[in-house]
Design a protein around this nucleic acid. Structure first.
Length: 595
RNA sequence: GCCCCCGUAGCUCAAUGGAUAGAGCAGUGCUCUUCUAAGGCAUUGAUGAGGGUUCGAUUCCUUCCGGGGGCACCA
């Protein structure tokens, strides 16, 4: 990575010039203004305190020291004391060559080797239709998993399905109540829909009649105690719902999950935890029989492990989950991609786990995201009737994409497939381009926009560049070798010609900026993972695309007369399109060759 | 009542304590005999209010104003 190379150089220069100074973390960032170079650092400003020297003077000395390097054309010391680095064209050119040589490896690293990171996301509930409020977890979690994998981490995903708990009491009660009617009726047609209806109807009844809630809770207690009838119904309900879940995950194009440990999986692992908690004095049994952990002194209220009716809680099941995951996977991090509204729960969870001396308590973290709200305000919920089903959104996305294709590129061969990629790409990118923690507003025309800073813009940029490559290859004398049109054959041809060039290419500012942006790809992934937010990568890809389009527009490539230049341009096009495709992949978005 | 988060352009969003606060949408004006106009170019426009910390604050602290969320023996 270029940035770390510069960091190292600065560190060395500081050590050489000011041996007595404690090595501080050197910050290197990308300045907003192009005139400020490709990278800049504020070390001199930070050092001035410790050294009791004028920051400008320090910057001056450092810049002289660093100017030796052939890596830069210029290292300047400016105004308050910034150091601005201008990467030499030759260096950029070499970096491009290394990308071309091994495009598969660009953006990959082995930093995470030997580290297992658990990522939990897409925690669907039984009998509740996945709606747009649910997809943030899936989209963010999936992107994080992809990013972790690209850096060599052993990333393990788990859906943690909500297949246990009081909601089953509600479902069971509703199911039995609807009984006569339902059992005779064929519900094989849309069993999930039936189930959902049962849930909603029973929920409404419970709202009217508090006594019914008690009956529902009793049904869950019976289930948890092993009542055969309830078990049987439960198994059926879970089966039907899991089908729905797989369907949704599939349609969203999520990476396969490594684990599907629903909450019910932890059923037999909870008793020991309760006993241990009581024994250690962490938890106590209160008068009505409930088992709680009192965290009121820490401002975390009371955490309930066992309810007064004897049933387990979500919290207790999550405790068991931590224990299981640590034992099974010995994770380095255990991440929960869950709505910010559950942060109170996770604070309780991690605190109780810590009090119980659980291994992995400290490594468990809530990767919270802002919830999705509607333009008129208010969260999206199934009960409030404001839920827009995932299915509906995806259908709409594909329809809109198909309409645009019909208009812009009616001859497109695999229009259906591309509509899917583009519609889904718009939806995912919309989500991922926001900071993870910020709430996002769901507005159809924004979510499914295909213009401006959107997924389709990135896909489009990629497709146009690919189109150039296809044409270049088909006109190329060696095109027979590239018949299959694979990336490898393309890049082999390009590479052969690029490495033949001995002269230094003179770059114009647009090409230079594009190249300088291109080589930051690994840094964008690193920065995104540092805050567990894919939006950093999304923002980077957008910038790359903007510069790619700038280049596309100003530089005719196929008609370039100077053969060396043309080869260089093609190499650049190849590298940029490769990074776009790869970056989109890391966000879980497909990049069609044509659109 | 207690706890958490958020107030940036007309709208939706960016900005590890840094330089002239970036984008997109919407608006206005250009741009397709030229590698895909889902594009490109130009242009209008913003840090809720007051204190503090420091070389430097959208960012950290504090008060106020405004908005949202949580404090379920739901998940």
């Amino acid at each position: 990575m270029v940035r770390s190379e510069i960091q190292k150089k600065i560190q060395d220069a500081v050590a050489a010039l000011y041996p007595d100074t404690a090595v501080l973390p050197v910050e290197v960032s990308v300045p907003e203004q192009r005139e400020h170079g490709n990278y800049s650092s504020n070390v001199a400003l930070l050092l001035s305190h410790a050294l009791k020297k004028n920051p400008m003077e320090i910057a001056q000395q450092l810049s002289e020291k660093l100017s030796d390097s052939t890596m830069f054309t210029k290292v300047e010391a400016v105004k308050p004391g910034f150091l601005n680095f201008f990467i030499a064209d030759q260096k950029l050119f070499e970096l491009l060559q290394s990308v071309i040589e091994n495009p598969e490896m660009f953006g990959q690293s082995t930093i995470g080797k030997g580290k297992t990171v658990m990522v939990e996301y897409f925690q669907l509930n039984i009998a509740k239709r996945p709606h747009i409020g649910h997809i943030r977890s899936a989209i963010i979690g999936d992107a994080l998993k992809r990013m972790f994998l690209s850096q060599g981490y052993h990333a393990i995903s788990d859906t943690h399905v909500g297949d246990w708990g009081t909601q089953f009491g509600i479902l069971l009660l509703g199911y039995k109540g609807a009984g006569a009617d339902l059992h005779t009726k064929e519900i094989t047609e849309d069993p999930f829909g039936e189930l959902e209806e049962i849930y909603l109807a029973e929920n409404a009844k419970i709202k009217e009649d508090p006594l019914r809630r008690e009956r529902a809770k009793q049904e869950f207690v019976k289930l948890e105690q092993g009542d055969p009838e309830n078990r049987k119904i439960w198994v059926w309900m879970v089966e039907i719902s899991m089908q729905k879940l797989f369907e949704a995950a599939n349609r969203l194009g999520l990476l396969p999950f490594d684990e599907h440990r629903g909450e019910s999986f932890y059923e037999d692992k909870m008793q020991l935890i309760v006993e241990s908690a009581l024994q250690r004095g962490v938890a106590k049994k209160i008068d009505d029989g409930a088992v709680i952990v009192d965290l009121t002194n820490e401002g975390l209220d009371e955490a309930v492990l066992i309810k007064s009716d004897g049933a387990s809680t979500y919290l207790l099941r999550d405790l068991a989950t931590i224990q299981y995951r640590k034992k099974e996977w010995n994770f380095w991090k255990n991440l929960y991609v869950v709505d910010v509204r559950q942060s109170h729960h996770f604070k309780q969870l991690f605190r109780v786990a810590e009090m119980l001396g659980f291994d992995g308590a400290g490594e468990s973290q809530h990767v919270e995201y802002g919830f999705m709200k509607l333009p008129e305000g208010g969260a999206i919920s199934t009960r409030g009737g404001t839920g827009i089903s995932l299915e509906k959104v995806l259908n709409e996305a594909e329809e809109r994409a198909a309409a645009v294709i019909a208009q812009k590129n009616p001859a497109l061969a695999n229009a259906k497939e591309v509509s899917h990629m583009v519609g889904l790409g718009a939806l995912k990118y919309f989500d991922l381009s926001h900071h993870r923690k910020s709430d996002i507003t769901f507005e159809w025309d924004r979510v499914l926009s295909f213009e401006g800073n959107t997924g389709p813009y990135l896909q489009y940029t990629h497709a146009r560049l690919k189109s150039i490559l296809r044409k270049a290859i088909s006109h190329h004398p060696e095109s027979a070798a590239a018949e299959e049109g694979s990336l490898m054959s393309q890049h082999e041809i390009l590479l052969r010609q690029l490495t033949d060039q001995n002269d230094t290419i003179v770059l114009d500012p647009i090409q230079r900026n594009l190249l300088a942006t291109l080589i930051r790809f690994p840094e964008a992934i690193e920065d995104g993972l540092a805050v567990w937010s894919p939006h950093v990568l999304a923002g980077y890809l957008y910038e790359l695309a903007v510069r790619g389009n700038e280049f596309y527009h100003t530089t005719p490539i196929l008609t370039e007369a100077d053969e060396e230049k043309k080869q260089f341009f093609l190499a650049l096009v190849f590298a940029v399109s490769t990074v776009l495709k790869k970056g989109l992949y890391l966000l879980g978005i497909d990049a069609p060759e044509e659109m």
